[in-house]
Each structure stands twice: as C-alpha cells, then as structure tokens.
Design a binder for these strands. Sequence first.
DNA 1: CCGTATCCTGAGCGATACTG
DNA 2: CAGTATCGCTCAGGATACGG
Lengths: 105, 105
Amino acid sequence: MPYNIPVEATLDVIGGKWKVVILCHLDKGDKRTSELRKLMPNITQKMLTQQLRELEDDGMVKRTVYDQVPPKVIYSLTEYGWSFKPILDAMCSWGETHMEANNLE
Amino acid sequence: MPYNIPVEATLDVIGGKWKVVILCHLDKGDKRTSELRKLMPNITQKMLTQQLRELEDDGMVKRTVYDQVPPKVIYSLTEYGWSFKPILDAMCSWGETHMEANNLE
DNA sequence: CCGTATCCTGAGCGATACTG
DNA sequence: CAGTATCGCTCAGGATACGG
C-alpha cells in the first residue's frame, strides 16, 4: 500500500494515541518504565508497553534491560529517534502557544 | 481536562486520521473540495467534510463559498494555520527520508 | 459540485487480573 | 518493577444513499 503523500510515512510511525507524548518525554532524557508512568498518569501499563514496542519496532526507541532484581528497564531515543526531535520541539512549543492563546493554562 | 504536557494541545488539533494530510495539501495552495478529493483518493466525502469542519472550528482552515451554480468552495489556511507550516514541512521531509531508507518508494 | 443523514463495522483502547 | 493475557467496549471512521 503505497503512500499518496510522504507525510503518511511519518504518521504511520507517530500515529498512536501516546507515541508523540512518549517521544517528548524521552527527548528530555532516558526514562525508566515507572518514570514514564508517572509522567503519563492516564496511560495503562498495557498501552505504555504496546506503544513502546511499536516505537521500538520502527527504530525510534531503544530498550535496555538491566538483569537484576527488581527489574530495571531504560528507554531511550535511538539516533533515528533523535532525528525526529526538531519536530517534537516544534509541536511542543506550538502547543504551548495554543494553550496560552486560549487561556487554558 | 488539563493537559499533562503541552504537546497534547497540538495533538488535539491534528489528531484526526486525515488532518495532517489535508493541511499538507493546503499549505501548497488553496484547494477546491474536488481537488482535495483527487489528492486523497481514499478519503470519503463524509470524512473530508468532517475533518475540514473540525480544522475550521480550531481556526486552522478557512472556508470560502462562492454563491454560484454549480457550487464552488475553496479551502485555505488561516494565519493560524500557516503558523503550523514549519511542522508540516518537517513532517513531510522526515517522511520522505523514512520512505527512502526503507526502499518503499 | 458539495454537503448531509444513516447505519454499521472493527480495531484501538481501557479495565482487570496474573506472572517472573 | 516490568510485562502479559483476556475480555469487552467505545467511537472514530467507512459505506451508502439522498438533497440543494
């Protein structure tokens, strides 16, 4: 199924409900699973894992497991994921402006 | 329902299945409804209208009706919509790179 | 040409409980 | 702490037909 326009390839990668939010958090530093959950109070464990797996499959996120008890898992952006950072920053600051304009803050 | 992170405000605006694609087309020039349909072969009339209305409600798109027979309607970006153009361009070119990297073109 | 009105499908998502 | 496994539902999105 070829794309009708290249931007659809981008949407395929970031198209999940939580993916952009996850990427935004990771671009401010590597995070443990539990840290991501605190940053996203409304996400379930299932969705967090699922969205992270898909981002991993698309090469955006790297998963590092520390073999210890209790378990420790760190998520970080790959080089490919970092190439997306300019877009993330732009989306973030655009959102801030939007919120201010509507006195929603 | 406050946002946990500002980027969610952005996602609220561009979160429909076709919205980013529509914005991409409009940022290359104003378009009639029928032109948009040709550019997006897989969208239905219903979805096209629906996504355009939501973009209109969010102040991203302007709808101009020419009172004639047969009807003619032109969609264009508002000033607010243009403020989103840098992100659109970035998403487009990122998508192109992504497609090339996967030999999908 | 452009938009609306219905009806309906299904997959994305949530809730919950359980495992190493 | 981190991840899996089910189950079930909502609702965004699709199909179709009609109307100005």
